[in-house]
Design a protein around this nucleic acid. Structure first.
Lengths: 211, 211
DNA sequence: CAACGATGGTGACCCAGGTCACCGTTACAA
DNA sequence: TTGTAACGGTGACCTGGGTCACCATCGTTG
């Protein structure tokens, strides 16, 4: 189904003022991203704020030499906090955005940010709230990797997945989990088995059932 | 030396519009924090944005049960990004602010934030820039603890200290470094000695000289 | 059906770094 | 002067988790 910018804004950004949505519809660009594709921000400077209209994307922090770590999901109604900030300079800051479902994003050139900020409370609140949430999320990530052991991180990860994906049958491979937690498949397999013995999950081929 | 709010603003926040500074001087509160004192934000909700006028503070992330990790310094002219966000709800988000020098902060109640944001470009730019810098800093922290080994983190830490403190004689104990990196004194001592053998630093009692 | 790739299980091994125990040195206070 | 606390050094030991090697199972495609 093909929708136009205004329809997406109406559907997922109800808190925006009608006039704001009208202005945005004029200037924004729509982009479709097929599942699996990554918007690497490692060189290509995004000069637009990214609003998610459809689908689901995963945001990763990339290590200096190979390796990555999962930060958080972006869903319809969310925005990429980084893309709101990075705009002015082409700082790329080793972050990777990957679509895990076919997704649609709305790109609003950053040059309008300041103007919208001053004229629309709906936009101001949205931006502040976005920063706040992502900041919290990064702090949570920091204390997980700094203070928690892998088994605890795994439990948290699985809980998070269930919540975000809205199902307790997680169709995710051990290898993917290992990538997201920046660990290795073997370790994740071992820990999962331990969780199964504790009766917290049930392992199946291709998916994990949470109990 | 006792200065008033306006004098501090003139000294360290030259990018603010004169009218903004005038308004702020009316409503802001000044607080002095002696060296060593901590503004724990674990329960006490800061309803004000914290601007640093004098001194130097360290911001830590606290672990769930004891333990902490150093995030970054706040210096005159900086603001605590978290205090800009957390304001509305009393979310405390396990962060600790510790003065390492006698410090003075300017507290601007958050209820003025939105208003200033819309009326003063100087304030808007300051806030956006603050978010951007701190976000970057958190991302850097994340990839250090996620991807780097302790020796590399130590080197980075020392370089950072030299830069921020403006001297290559670092008056800091091994124990403090261990706390900041969330490691243990013995490990830091061993790694420092290795760095000394590599000719990168010279160890003295009470301070470390960087070469 | 055969072959291959993706997935997952398992044991053996290794190592960074956390912990423990203990000691030496320096500074400062009683 | 003598405690005493802070600081720093060092060896012994342990463990979480990363790595390697290899094998089993399943689904898909030629």
């Amino acid at each position: 189904m093909m929708m136009d910018t205004r329809a997406y804004l109406d559907a997922h950004f109800p808190q925006f003022e009608p006039e704001l949505k009208a202005e945005m519809a004029e200037i924004a660009e729509i982009r479709n991203i097929p599942a699996g594709e990554t918007l690497m921000r490692t060189g290509q400077n995004i000069r637009s704020t990214v609003l998610v209209a459809e689908g689901r994307l995963k945001l990763y922090r990339e290590g200096h030499d190979e390796g990555e770590i999962f930060m958080y999901y972006l869903e319809p109604g969310n925005a990429c906090a980084l893309s709101m900030i990075c705009g002015q300079q082409q700082e790329t800051s080793g972050v990777m955005l990957k679509a895990i479902e076919d997704s649609t994003v709305i790109l609003v050139p950053v040059k309008f940010m300041e103007n919208f900020m001053q004229r629309y409370k709906g936009w101001y609140n949205f931006v502040v709230e976005t920063y706040r949430e992502r900041f919290e999320e990064l702090l949570t990530l920091i204390d997980h990797i700094a203070f928690r052991a892998m088994d605890e991180r795994l439990v948290y990860y699985l809980g998070n997945q269930r919540e975000k994906l809205g199902t307790s049958k997680l169709h995710i491979t051990h290898g993917e989990i290992a990538t997201d937690l920046h660990s290795s498949r073997e370790v994740i397999s071992r820990l999962l088995k331990k969780l199964e013995q504790q009766g917290k999950v049930k392992l199946h081929r291709q998916y994990i059932e949470m109990l």
